[in-house]
């Protein structure tokens, strides 16, 4: 049983719980609660290469969705489309029901959103990158409070207070005044997670958060991610860590060459893979 499900046994019943027990149901049919994130028919091409060829799935509130697949399957591009770092060529992203790329006005006409509007919506998504991307000229605490102060316009005291709380949560509070260059990879990534949390996002996006880390450092970051999942954080996790995906996710999506090849609860995807490509993919990881 996944940790996330176990944690929610004692919580009030959400529709998402019902959802997670219904395997392979097309998302739009079951919904009566608005999912945190809906990915609808995303296409993206770079020059002649079409990297995403129509990807759709839902991320219900409080759930953890893992995206797995081979290199080149479009996983990272997909995540970058979710917050419009790469605007999709076709399709739409809905954040709690609101489309990200375009606005629908009173008369039902679609109008593309300006960069300022997209920026405003980006505040609700916390992103953790493979390369950490901490800003090297600021301390850890400086990194954590930068966006809350400049983007959410919080007063400095408030930002620092909540920022320190986030750092405590990832166990980095004692390094608050260090510069990123002095920290190990695992410490930097945990700081990056705190930085994302400090914005109180509605959902967290993890883009291969542990792929750049040495094996010893990977566990400390995965530990933090597990705790976040247990607390009910809505997460999309692009990952190679199959054990994490199996144990922590509510839903696993297998991406192959830009399409959702198979999806479902981890038990089904890992235990009884239907598609041949998924079986091949998993066999490489069987030893883990």
């Amino acid at each position: 049983m996944s940790i996330a499900r176990a944690a929610r046994e004692s919580a009030p019943i959400f529709m998402s719980q019902v959802l997670s027990q219904v395997p392979n149901e097309a998302p739009s049919q079951v919904l009566s609660e608005v999912p945190s994130i809906r990915v609808a028919g995303i296409h993206k091409r770079f020059g002649p290469l079409e990297v995403l060829r129509g990807v759709s799935f839902d991320v219900p509130r409080g759930s953890v969705v893992s995206v797995i697949g081979a290199s080149g399957s479009g996983k990272s591009t997909l995540l970058r489309c979710v917050n419009h770092l790469e605007p999709p060529d076709a399709g739409e992203i809905y954040i709690e029901g609101e489309p990200l790329g375009a606005r629908v006005d009173a008369r039902g006409n679609r109008k593309a959103r300006s960069l300022a509007e997209i920026n405003a919506m980006r505040r609700e998504l916390g992103v953790v990158f493979q390369q950490f991307n901490l800003w090297p000229h600021m301390t850890v605490l400086g990194n954590v409070i930068e966006a809350p102060i400049r983007v959410r316009k919080l007063p400095r005291k408030e930002a620092v207070a909540y920022g320190e709380e986030c750092l405590r949560r990832v166990r980095m509070i004692d390094k608050a005044n260090e510069y990123p260059a002095r920290l190990s990879g695992g410490q930097q990534q945990r700081a990056a997670i705190a930085r994302a949390l400090a914005m109180r996002p509605k959902a967290m996006l993890f883009d291969e958060a542990t792929s750049s880390l040495d094996p010893e450092l990977t566990d400390e970051v995965l530990g933090v991610m597990r705790e976040l999942a247990a607390d009910g954080t809505t997460m999309i996790v692009v990952t190679h860590e199959m054990s994490f995906a199996r144990e922590v996710s509510d839903r696993v999506i297998f991406l192959h060459q830009g399409l959702v090849e198979e999806e479902g609860p981890p038990g089904d995807v890992f235990g009884a893979p239907k598609s041949e490509r998924l079986q091949q993919f998993l066999s490489k990881y069987r030893k883990q």
Partner: peptide, 12 residues
């Protein structure tokens, strides 16, 4: 990556 992080946080 520095810029990606900034944009992802909604910085103008």
């Amino acid at each position: 990556g520095n810029l990606d992080a900034g944009r992802s946080f909604g910085m103008s």
